[in-house]
């Protein structure tokens, strides 16, 4: 995965970048399965590797697919990124170790969900139960966000409806 990201950073051909982004998404989905997040992995594989790649390819079709050489030297962004990374590494020193059952994330509300979810909702999949039953309003808000984005895409691209390609992109955005 790290290798994919490094090649992705260095590559100039945008088609390569887009395909590598799809590969990266699949690798991320695999890692998520290993971390027990099966629902998230399914969504990532379909949305991250599928729809995102299609959207990026659609945009590439409408734009040039070669990146010109950067005019500036990359040292300043590199320094900023490295500084941010060092700060984050410093921050992790205070975090609990991987898979520590006594970590705060496992001790607050989660046992209540895991113990009562079957009795209260009858849905064995806890992720679905929380998403649809306990936090249904948040999911409604999420749908609103997607709807707004779709309207924005249509408003931006409406002028070019005569040409092919734009119509495909609008359909994909919905």
């Amino acid at each position: 995965m790290a290798l994919t990201v490094i090649v992705l950073t260095r590559s100039r051909n945008l088609f390569t970048v887009v395909v590598l982004a799809g590969v990266y998404s699949f690798l991320m989905a695999t890692a998520l399965v290993a971390l027990d997040a099966v629902d998230v992995a399914m969504t990532e594989a379909s949305v991250g590797a599928g729809i995102s790649t299609v959207l990026l390819l659609g945009a590439l079709y409408l734009c040039k697919s070669e990146e010109t050489k950067p005019v500036r030297k990359p040292w300043l962004p590199l320094a900023v990124s490295a500084a941010a990374g060092a700060l984050l590494v410093f921050g992790t020193l205070g975090l609990p170790a991987f898979s520590d059952p006594a970590a705060p994330i496992h001790t607050h509300v989660v046992p209540r969900y895991l113990n009562d979810v079957l009795r209260e909702t009858g849905v064995p999949n806890v992720v679905t139960a929380v998403l649809a039953s306990y936090r249904g309003y948040d999911t409604l808000g999420e749908t609103t966000v997607v709807f707004t984005a779709g309207i924005g895409v249509i408003a931006l691209l409406r002028r070019r409806r005569k040409q092919p390609g734009a119509a495909n992109k609008q359909d994909a955005a919905k």
Binding site: V40, S52, A59, V146
Partner: peptide, 16 residues
Amino acid sequence: IVVGVATLALGLALVV
């Protein structure tokens, strides 16, 4: 993830 793909679509529309 879902919100991310929505913002990506909007960003690409702006790029176009």
